[in-house]
Nucleic acid binder design. Structure first.
Lengths: 193, 193
DNA sequence: GACGCACTCCCTACCAGAAGGTAGACAAAG
DNA sequence: CTTTGTCTACCTTCTGGTAGGGAGTGCGTC
């Protein structure tokens, strides 16, 4: 019955929420210390430097994404795309983690520690590869209608989803996210005229 | 033959570049001071607080955008869309200001001073209104082919462009921006089947 | 079972530097 | 003789990070 999450998990979870709110330079060890109820120095015990913390966080984030992708593998490509956009619709709708950690960090790449940049890049490559293969599958099956190459359609998909998150935040209106992603899916699943 | 730009303009220009690189919390008065060749305290003379500086910067940025939009008003809707995406293609391609200031700031909204948030929101509303009216015009003329409402198509357009900027930065490949925005324009300008 | 020993985790106390910002002096310009 | 723009000097708070101590835990050895 003890607390199931270890302290280091709590730190990571807290840092994740703080990054989602304001990026790499938008939080400090002191912020985490307040939320987790632990002293600053104790955080350094788990993650010697801020770079260690964020690198670990992004690496784990990517692993979770990989696991989620694997979980979806048995569904139809169109359903996988829907599952992905609906996952974020839920996150944005209820206010828990209303932004992708890696999308936010990517926007700050020029001032990010190189180690963190590497992890963020790996996340983008992962999604690019996954979506490209989905597009290829869907096109072969005839369940997805592509306008260009699978790769190009995949990149457009990622970009639109990230842009939709940004617009939802910019307007302060979560509904704008679905208003952008729904037509995106419809366009891909519409039968060819 | 004196330096045409006033010091305060230089400060604004420098701050803009720094925000584009790393967001609101990614730069300091000391950074500006180094680039402009002036002491920190002198910057405070022009902009008493960081909020003043960034609020002014974003307000001016929006005014410039408004002027640019007005300049384009006589062209065809499709050409205006092209002009907009190509402007950013050039900025991203040559490395000068490879990101929209307001797109970057929007991602940090939860930790931004409220005054700045107001300005950023105004920028997004400006573009939303402009693009919506372009979509309406184009649809009426038959020069643009919309899949949904003009508003929905406009929001998709903004989101995709911002997402394309993000992906270009994430991959470290400027070309990805054009790879995403070119099909976006083609889809809108294609004749209805 | 008692001892010593390493290990984990958290603590207090501290540090140097950077953050945003202020006070007041000085010089040039109108 | 005020206004404008810059300076030096300084302040407070926050920043990421370090040193070292102490409590608890597990483990092999006598």
């Amino acid at each position: 019955m003890a607390n199931m999450t270890s302290t280091s998990d709590e730190i990571l979870g807290c840092a994740r929420a703080l990054i989602v709110a304001g990026g790499y330079n938008g939080f400090s060890y002191a912020d985490i210390s307040e939320v987790v109820g632990i002293r600053k120095a104790s955080i350094h015990h788990h993650f010697p430097s801020k770079v260690d913390l964020v690198r670990t966080l992004v690496a784990r984030y990517r692993e979770e994404a990989e696991a989620a992708i694997a979980q979806l593998a048995r569904q139809e490509p169109a359903d996988q795309l829907r599952a992905y956009t609906e996952y974020w619709a839920a996150c944005i709708g209820d206010g828990t983690r209303p932004f992708c950690v890696c999308a936010l960090l990517a926007s700050e790449i020029p001032v990010l520690p190189p180690d963190v940049v590497l992890e963020v890049r790996a996340y983008f490559r992962l999604f690019s590869a996954w979506l490209t293969s989905l597009m290829e599958q869907g096109a072969k099956q005839g369940t997805l209608t592509l306008s260009g190459t699978a790769r190009s359609e995949a990149e457009t998909f990622i970009a639109t989803v990230h842009g939709a998150m940004l617009s939802a935040r910019a307007y302060g209106e979560p509904s704008i996210y679905a208003a952008i992603t729904r037509p995106l899916i419809e366009r891909l699943t519409a039968p060819r005229q």
